[in-house]
Design a protein around this nucleic acid. Structure first.
Length: 408
RNA sequence: CGGGGAUUGGCGCAGUGGUAGCGCGCUCGGUUUGGGACCGAGAGGCCGUGAGUUCAAAUCUCACAUCCCCGACCA
C-alpha cells in the first residue's frame, strides 16, 4: 500500500474529549473514527488489525473443535423474557419491531443459541457441540468510555459448548482456558487468568486480564505464583496456592469464560436422552473474547510518546518503507523495486512514497502508526537499507536479502 | 443514573454585548527535503439546537441535545 493513497491521513491532534490513550493514538493514526459515544468506524488500518486478531482467534477455535456460525444481532424480545433477562440485563437495547413486538439488540447470544440447539439436539449422540461466532455486540452502557475499552457496539468472539455431562463440560472448559492462553500468546498481549464472579451467567468464572494502569478492573496478583483474583471475589490474606503476597493492580478484562448455570437450559427446554434413556439437561459453557477491546488494550500496553508499537502478528503492515530523496529517479526506482520485491514475498508493506512531505514528517508518521519494521531508503543509505525496529533505538544497515531473512 | 466540564472553519483553540480571529491542515506559485521546513497569495464559519432579553447576542437568560471526565453500575 502506498502511503500517498492510504485513507485517511494522520493528524497531529486528537479530537477534543479524546483523553484515553488508545482513543487518541488510534484516531490520530487513522485506525478508527468515532461516530458517537462508544461507537466507532474501523478505517482501513484498524480493520486490518481487527481482521488479524479475528483470524488468530478463528484458527484457534477451529483447532479445539469449534464450528463457526453467524447469529443475528436482532433478537426476539420473547426469548429474553423466557430467561428473565429482558428485565434484568440492564444494558439491553430494546425497541419495537414492525409488528409491535419487542426486539432486542444482542449483547450476548444464549437467548439465540439455546433455542437453536433444542431443534437439533435430542440424544447424547448429538453431543458435544461447540459453536462460535465473531460478531458485533450491543450493550447500552450507561457510560461508554476509554475509546475501544468500553463501547456500546463492539466486536466479540463468543463460543458456546454443549455437553452430555458437567464433567465433560468442565474438561472442555479447561481446554478452552488453555486455548485462550495460546491466543493471547500469539497476539502478543500478556494476560493473567483471574478468578471472578459470573454475573448473570454463572457463580464463578475465569477472566483474562491484561495489566495496565488505564484498566478499569482491580485484581490481586500473587507475587510469587502469579495467581490472580478479581477484587469482587477477593477474600484471602495470602495466596491459597503458594502462600505468597498479593499486589493490587489495575487491569483490562479482555476475555471471560463461564460454566453456565442450568437455568438457561431449563428456560428453553434444552434436554437430551442419555445412554440409559433418561431425559437430562444439557451442560453448557460460554466463552467470550472482546476483539475490539483487545485492540484498545494492545495500544494501552504497547506505546511510547511517539505512537503505537504493534506486536508483529497483529500489525496492519509488517514494514514501513520511508522513501527519502524520491525526486532522484535512482532512489525512486530502488524504493519501488524493494517495495514490489517484499510484497512478492507475501510481506505486507506500507511505502511512504510522498514526494512533497518532509523526512521528519515521514518518520513521525512511521512512529505513530507503529509498524514493526521501518526501512529507510535514501541517498545516504547508498546500496544498503536502514532497518530499525519500532520501539528500539538502534539502526542497522542491511542488504535486501538480510532484511528478508529477518522478516521470516 | 448523580456530580462536574465542554460545544466557535476539516482538527486544535482565542474571542464577556456592536455582526468573528489564531495555529495546524487544505489550494496555487516558488524555495526546500535525515525527525512534523520556509516565503508569498488564497479558499473555508447561520459561533450545537430552540426560545427569550436587547436598538444590537458567539457573548446575557431558560430549555434541550451531544461529547468528555469523576462516581455508581457492569459478562
Amino acid at each position: 500500500m502506498l502511503v500517498s493513497q492510504l485513507f485517511p491521513q494522520t493528524s497531529k491532534t486528537a479530537p477534543a474529549g479524546a483523553e484515553s490513550l488508545n482513543q487518541q493514538l488510534l484516531i490520530r493514526a487513522g485506525f478508527i473514527h468515532q461516530e458517537m459515544a462508544g461507537v466507532y468506524t474501523y478505517l482501513p488500518l484498524g480493520l486490518k488489525v481487527l481482521t488479524k486478531l479475528s483470524q488468530i482467534i478463528r484458527e484457534e477455535m477451529d483447532r479445539i473443535g469449534g464450528q463457526e456460525v453467524l447469529m443475528p444481532a436482532l433478537h426476539p424480545g420473547e426469548n429474553w423474557k423466557k430467561t428473565g433477562r429482558f428485565e434484568t440485563f440492564d444494558v439491553l437495547f430494546k425497541f419495537k419491531g414492525a409488528s409491535g413486538a419487542d426486539v432486542v439488540l444482542g449483547p450476548t447470544h444464549e437467548e439465540i443459541i439455546y433455542p437453536l440447539l433444542t431443534e437439533y439436539v435430542t440424544s447424547y449422540k448429538d453431543l458435544p457441540i461447540a459453536l462460535y461466532q465473531i460478531q458485533t455486540k450491543f450493550r447500552n452502557e450507561l457510560r461508554a468510555k476509554a475509546g475501544l475499552l468500553r463501547g456500546r457496539e463492539f466486536l466479540m468472539k463468543d463460543l458456546y459448548s454443549f455437553h452430555a455431562s458437567e464433567q465433560d463440560r468442565d474438561q472442555y472448559y479447561e481446554k478452552v482456558k488453555k486455548s485462550y492462553l495460546k491466543i493471547f500468546a500469539q497476539i502478543g498481549l500478556p494476560v493473567l487468568v483471574t478468578k471472578a464472579a459470573g454475573g448473570t451467567f454463572s457463580d464463578l468464572s475465569d477472566e483474562f486480564q491484561s495489566l495496565t494502569p488505564s484498566g478499569e478492573d482491580t485484581i490481586f496478583v500473587c507475587q510469587s505464583c502469579q495467581r490472580a483474583v478479581n477484587q469482587e471475589v477477593f477474600d484471602e490474606e495470602t495466596c491459597q496456592q503458594c502462600g505468597g503476597e498479593f499486589k493490587k493492580e489495575k487491569s483490562i478484562e479482555v476475555g471471560n469464560i463461564f460454566p453456565l448455570k442450568q437455568s438457561y437450559a431449563k428456560a428453553f427446554g434444552l434436554y437430551f436422552t442419555s445412554e440409559k434413556g433418561e431425559k437430562k439437561l444439557v451442560s453448557v459453557g460460554c466463552y467470550g473474547l472482546g476483539i475490539s477491546r483487545v485492540m484498545g488494550a494492545i495500544v494501552e500496553v504497547f506505546h511510547d510518546e511517539k505512537g503505537i508499537i504493534w506486536p508483529e502478528k497483529v500489525a496492519p503492515f509488517q514494514v514501513y518503507i520511508v522513501g527519502l530523496d524520491l525526486e532522484s529517479k535512482d532512489i525512486w526506482d530502488k524504493a519501488e523495486n524493494i517495495y514490489q520485491n517484499l510484497q512478492a514475498e507475501g510481506i505486507e508493506v506500507l511505502f511512504d512514497d510522498r514526494k512533497s512531505v518532509s523526512a521528519g514528517e515521514k518518520f513521525t508518521d512511521a512512529d505513530l502508526l507503529g509498524i514493526p519494521y521501518r526501512v529507510v531508503i535514501s541517498k545516504k543509505s547508498e546500496s544498503n537499507l536502514e532497518l530499525k525496529k519500532r520501539g528500539e533505538k538502534t539502526t542497522q544497515l542491511v542488504s535486501l536479502a538480510e532484511l528478508k531473512s529477518q522478516l521470516k
